[in-house]
């Protein structure tokens, strides 16, 4: 039971990051590696906000705002100019942007190259569930994730902007011909997806009690595994895939120890799934 809770919490952090990435892939069909940079920025700003106020909730708002802003900037300054270019061009630009973000953040006058301690008290209780314990930090992760995913679902299914996102992701040109403000739909996808990345950064910072200039390195490719597993561009897919991966990792480690690095597990599952179901767990094969 304790393991299941650990997996659920771990999966939450995966999902928050992967969902935004999937939204962005869905709408622009670009491999947005710099998303992990946005995640680190969100974590760092959350850390600073927590340092000023001592509140993890202020940290969350700060991290999400910083995420939204930096994600939007990456789009406005970089991708928007590359929309007509072959797809490897934005990919290379994205990798470059990610490296620049990491290197900048690791400057001594920003995060430095060391882990920075963030022993935040979420002000939440420790909850017992069927003999297992949910620590206040884990509860924070779960509550934030559940609330944000719910809000995202409502936004997607019920709001004008959600309809525009879905329409633009489905067919950008047709969306334009149907009166959708494509430009605004893309920019807001970046802003919202990146706010989720910022939230992922802050929750991971609270859960691991630290932030780190290179904390985005592993998530930069792991989030992609989850997005591909979930069926590229889908939104529900990565949610399920993120939890599936977290449970698989936890199950393996609980029973066999660290027989192989955690991230190798992700890729192993990816290879297996791609062989069996090339469109991902939830993707629809489309001609």
């Amino acid at each position: 039971m304790q393991d299941a809770l650990t997996a659920l919490t771990l999966g939450s952090t995966y999902v928050l990051l992967a969902v935004g990435l999937s939204m962005i892939y869905g709408i622009l069909r670009i491999i947005h590696v710099a998303h992990a940079g946005v995640y680190t920025i969100g974590a760092y700003v959350g850390y600073l906000a927590w340092g000023q106020t001592g509140s993890v909730w202020v940290a969350l708002v700060g991290g999400m705002a910083a995420g939204a802003l930096s994600g939007w900037l990456i789009y406005a300054l970089m991708y928007r100019r590359l929309l007509e270019a072959p797809r490897y061009v934005p990919l290379i630009a994205s990798i470059g942007a990610f490296i620049v973000i990491q290197d900048l953040l690791s400057k001594p006058w920003l995060m430095g190259s060391d882990r920075l301690a963030m022993q935040a008290d979420p002000g939440l209780p420790s909850v017992g569930v069927l003999g297992a314990t949910v620590s206040p930090e884990a509860l924070y992760v779960l509550v934030v994730t559940a609330a944000l995913l719910l809000a995202l679902a409502v936004l997607f299914r019920r709001s004008d902007i959600g309809l525009q996102w879905r329409a633009t992701a489905s067919d950008r040109e047709l969306a334009g011909a149907s009166g959708v403000s494509v430009e605004r739909a893309i920019a807001s996808t970046f802003a919202v997806g990146s706010a989720l990345a910022g939230a992922a950064g802050v929750t991971v910072a609270v859960y691991t009690e630290s932030v780190f200039a290179f904390m985005g390195e592993v998530p930069s490719y792991k989030a992609f595994v989850i997005v591909v597993l979930g069926g590229l561009g889908a939104v529900l897919g990565p949610v399920v895939a993120g939890f599936v991966l977290a449970f698989a990792e936890t199950l393996l480690i609980a029973n066999a120890g660290f027989v192989l690095p955690r991230d190798a597990i992700a890729f192993l599952i990816l290879v297996i799934v791609l062989i069996v179901r090339p469109q991902g767990l939830f993707g629809r094969a489309r001609a």
């Binding site: 304790q2 393991d3 650990t6 480690i253 120890g257 660290f258 690095p261």
Partner: peptide, 17 residues
């Protein structure tokens, strides 16, 4: 008696064991 990879950050599962 178990080992972990250098980059590992989540020990909850093994520590539970």
């Amino acid at each position: 008696d178990s080992k972990y990879p250098l980059e590992e950050k989540d020990f909850r599962t093994v520590l539970g064991g």
